[in-house]
Design a protein around this nucleic acid. Sequence first.
DNA 1: ATCTCTGTTCACAA
DNA 2: GTTGTGAACAGAGA
Length: 301
Amino acid sequence: MPELAEVDYFRRRWDPGMGKVVEHLELHAGARVFRGCETAGWHELLQGAVMEVSLAHGKQMLFGFSGGGWLGVHLGMTGELRVESAGYEPGRHDHLVLRQAGGVLVFADSRMFGCLRLDVAVGGPPEWWRQLPPAVTSGGFSIDWVDGHLRRRHRSPIKAVLLDQAVFPGVGNWMADEILWRMGLHPLTPAGNLAGAPSRALRYHVRWVARRAMTTIGTDWSEPPASWLYRYRWAAGHCCPRPQCATPLVREEAAGRTSCWCPSCQPPPDGLTPTRKARPVRTGHRRENPLATSSARPPLS
DNA sequence: ATCTCTGTTCACAA
DNA sequence: GTTGTGAACAGAGA
């Protein structure tokens, strides 16, 4: 379910396993989440190893173990990390289970769009991790970085560029909609319209939404403030939360993804043909709070 | 039964 | 070369 803040929330759910030995490992060999991997060596590499560090970067996670094993985790659409109590019997979607004293670390993913990998690297994260693009909250995520990519993709809809993980790592569908709403930009606005001075504002809003998401969803899965579009974008029938607007929100497909925007605050750009609007998205459901819906999921320690 | 989905990748069209 | 589109992946929930 993850974008940047959700990913960090799930990363910390494995915190209870930090500093502990993996006594036993179970995995669903051949499951799609291991695509591209040879899992035969995972037992030898991880059993007996201590989990020493965890990192999150955009939608990627990395767990470091003694002996040089680095477990990479991408949650895809439905992946999640949990801790279960000792003696836990894995379910059919629990594709990786790490048993430790007093607890069991679980990676589950019903749709298996997620992905796991294990690399060996001594002294630091593996090469692929070091080559990730600059985190949106870091200094490397500069105005020049943003502006350069806006120019390179000047004809693409801004929403498509925001979803590009090579440019805005960790930004997903709801974050993109939130950012665009705050900027008063229609999702189909050509990215080139933001080149130059506006790229500074885009960078600002990306960072602002990322940081604030981290202090709400990212810490305890709590909802962002009621002033956020986030609270109203999941289901049809809501209005723009901006004071003195209250225009009914639009939910339609844009750039290939279900999008939500305010037709008043985010008017279509000049020249955008209003024809052939993709089918309106009829329904929508609220995200669930995993802490509230499952007694089997203890809160973070 | 039918439709949706916080993601990514691929083939193919324009 | 670029960008858009639809399908595919696979399952749960409404």
